[in-house]
Nucleic acid binder design. Sequence first.
DNA 1: TAACTTTATTCGCATAACCGAATATATTGA
DNA 2: TCAATATATTCGGTTATGCGAATAAAGTTA
Lengths: 116, 116
Amino acid sequence: MDKSTLAREVTQLHAEICSALADPRRILMLYTLHECSRNVGDLAVEIGISQPATSRHLKILKQRGLVSATRKGASVEYALIDERLIQALDLLRAVLYDRLTQRANLVEEAANYTEW
Amino acid sequence: MDKSTLAREVTQLHAEICSALADPRRILMLYTLHECSRNVGDLAVEIGISQPATSRHLKILKQRGLVSATRKGASVEYALIDERLIQALDLLRAVLYDRLTQRANLVEEAANYTEW
DNA sequence: TAACTTTATTCGCATAACCGAATATATTGA
DNA sequence: TCAATATATTCGGTTATGCGAATAAAGTTA
């Protein structure tokens, strides 16, 4: 594998990590697991989705190396792998907030905007 | 709109930003635009994809508020909106590198692994 | 206006992602 | 082993995303 092929592979993996983040439930899961590790059932209740859906989302996060899974008796405890995932999410959220704030200011300034 | 509805909306937008990052070409575009702003044609050459594909990817990045577009005569110059997007991408790439390095070390340590 | 350059969009299609429902697997404890 | 609990997977169908090819639209210059 030559250098540019390697770079392409890494960028592909980079995109796969991002696509693991590209779902609101999975983002909530990561923030929730950042508080503390949890098993599937508790996480399902916390996020408000079904057990199979929770399990499938966790599988995706695990495949991409974002969470770890440890069996604890009958249940499986999932944990956030790396604090930097939260840092990255926070940065993106900050960009988002700036965008919303900016838009809100425009609305204030121009009262003829009735919806946005 | 109540508080939890708002939170859900924001998380949805958060996920939409992440999904804008969930493609290797778009990641390359953001890193490329971080060097300097470019028009569509130059970016297409740099990334190595067609002009229509480039335009479509840029449309997605623009819709999600990640790049800006400024017409400069016949061409349109695209620019990165926010440095923090690169910081976020770098953090995710660092997590990825750690994962790859860790895996490589395991391979070194256990010579009976022939593929990974 | 006509020819040219640059960018954006549409169309038809293929693939990937996601869901609910049902079911399978794993673990514990009686 | 059997019942109960916890987790994971499969199935079928829907929606979202991506592409190339063709075409439209916008801007420039003669």
